[in-house]
C-alpha cells in the first residue's frame, strides 16, 4: 500500500510516501532522520487484518512535514535525503 503522509496547501504538495508492502520495519529511517519524523507502528493502522509492524510518520509531524523536513531539503531538488539513503529497500519517497 502506498501511504502518502502530509498535505497539500497553497504552496505545493508536501507528502512523504511509504510503500507499506515493501517496508519491513527495520527502523533504518528512524535512526537516519534528524527530525525524528518516522516511527514504528506495532500494527498497520490502515490495514487492521494485517498484524505486521510498519513504519509511519509521527502523528504530531504529519501536518508540518514541510518544516520538519526543511533541514534536509535545504540543498534543493538534487540533494539526497538521509532517509532515502538509509532505506535499504527504497520504500520511501518525497513529493517535493
Amino acid at each position: 500500500m502506498l501511504v502518502h503522509h502530509g498535505y497539500s496547501d497553497g504552496s505545493g504538495n508536501y507528502f512523504i510516501t511509504i510503500n507499506s508492502e515493501k517496508c519491513d520495519a527495520c527502523g533504518a529511517c528512524i535512526n537516519a532522520c534528524p527530525a525524528n519524523v518516522f516511527c514504528i507502528f506495532a500494527e498497520d493502522e490502515n490495514d487492521p487484518l494485517n498484524d505486521r509492524p510498519v513504519v509511519s510518520i509521527d502523528q504530531e509531524k504529519r501536518n508540518k512535514i514541510k518544516y520538519e523536513c526543511a533541514q534536509c531539503k535545504k540543498c534543493g531538488k538534487d540533494s539526497i535525503l538521509p532517509c532515502l539513503i538509509a532505506c535499504p529497500i527504497g520504500a520511501i519517497s518525497h513529493s517535493w
Binding site: 502506498l2 502518502h4 498535505y7 496547501d9 507528502f15 490495514d47
Partner: peptide, 9 residues
C-alpha cells in the same frame, strides 16, 4: 487500500 492520500490540514 493500495494507495491513499488524506488532506486533513
Amino acid at each position: 487500500v493500495t494507495n491513499f492520500l488524506m488532506n486533513d490540514k
